[in-house]
Amino acid sequence: MKKIKLRFYGYLNKFISVDQSKNLGLIDDRYYLHNYRGRQTIKDRIESIGVPHSEIALILKNGRPVNFSYLVQPEDFFSIYPYFYNFELQETKKLLPEYPGKPKFILDVHLGRLARYLRRFGFDTAYRNDYLDRQIVEISIKEKRIILSRDLGLLMRKRVKWASFIRDDDPQKQLKEVFDRYSLSNYYQGESRCVNCNGELKKVDKKKIVERLEPKTKKYYNDFRYCSKCDKIYWRGSHYEKTEKLLEKIAPD
């Protein structure tokens, strides 16, 4: 058996189970000894421990940056870092290409409420409760979408490029995770998408939909949006104000 040393920083340690930690052998609370056989890439070794490659921003081998395809050598010492929200890496050190433009997302079956929140704040978010893992990966590649998931197996698939593991169970805290990770406050301009189907909302004349409105809505509101995909009407009522306050709480200026 050959051995390498691995040191994980920040929240990456949370992916390593207690049993896995015992098997690896933690040395001085600083690094793990890891046994391997044959020819192995550092990506395969890291993911065999339970840390998905999508969560890793930087790998240093004996102090020098390497990419996921690096073939590990006996006695190599790796320092493995998560994403730094307030720190920009040099292009030559990035393991994955920067996501181009305003983020678009695709979510797994566990994140339906988060999908509605992201749509409410205007982010193009694909979600169905019957997506298969392979479908999520295919759509993410074809449509250049960031995968958000609570399934580590999905995030470790080889073709996954842009992705993030959602750690919290609470949808509002999940929303904060995503806003922080992808700096979404920089993109939000007060507009929304349809929370039901992700369709784009278009301004509609009140006269055209007035017969469909409840009496109080008809009386107090004049600015409406319409989703042509699912025939739903929106206006800036109490729910809109409530979610605006939520945004102020999770992503203050």
Rank of each mutant, 00 (worst) to 15 (best):
K232Y: 01
Y85V: 10
H53N: 07
F179P: 07
G199H: 04
K218E: 14
Y226I: 04
R193K: 14
E191R: 13
D168M: 06
F87K: 13
I42T: 11
T41R: 14
E200G: 01
Q135S: 15
L26P: 06
L154R: 07
N86I: 01
K219W: 00
Y31S: 07
S185E: 14
S21A: 10
T41A: 12
S21K: 09
T217D: 09
S17A: 07
D44N: 11
K173Y: 05
L155K: 02
L114T: 01
D231I: 01
I4H: 00
S140E: 06
Y85H: 14
G237Y: 02
S164N: 07
Q73V: 11
K232T: 11
K208Q: 12
M156Y: 02
V204K: 14
Q189Y: 02
E88F: 08
L58Q: 03
D170N: 15
D28Y: 01
F87P: 05
Y99E: 09
E248R: 10
G25E: 06
K219I: 01
S17H: 04
I4Q: 02
G190Q: 01
K43N: 09
C194L: 03
F87M: 10
N129H: 14
K3Y: 08
T217S: 11
P103M: 10
Q189V: 04
S192P: 10
D19W: 04
K5A: 08
I59N: 14
S140K: 08
D28F: 00
F15Q: 05
R167A: 03
L26Y: 04
K94H: 10
P74R: 09
M1V: 03
K206I: 09
I146V: 09
R30P: 00
L155Q: 07
K14S: 14
P97V: 04
R39F: 01
V204N: 11
S183H: 15
L152Y: 07
S183L: 07
V178Y: 04
S140F: 10
S69Q: 15
E55Y: 13
R45S: 13
S140T: 02
R116Q: 14
R145L: 08
W235C: 05
D108H: 06
K207S: 15
N35K: 09
N129A: 09
A251C: 08
R116K: 15
R225D: 11
S183M: 03
C230P: 04
S228E: 04
Y234V: 06
D180R: 05
F15H: 05
S238D: 00
N35F: 09
E248Q: 13
N35G: 03
I56P: 07
K242M: 00
K176S: 13
Y226R: 01
I166T: 11
K206E: 12
S69T: 13
I136A: 05
R212S: 10
F77M: 07
F121S: 01
P215Y: 03
Y220C: 00
R113H: 12
V18R: 14
P171A: 03
I250H: 05
K104G: 03
K232C: 00
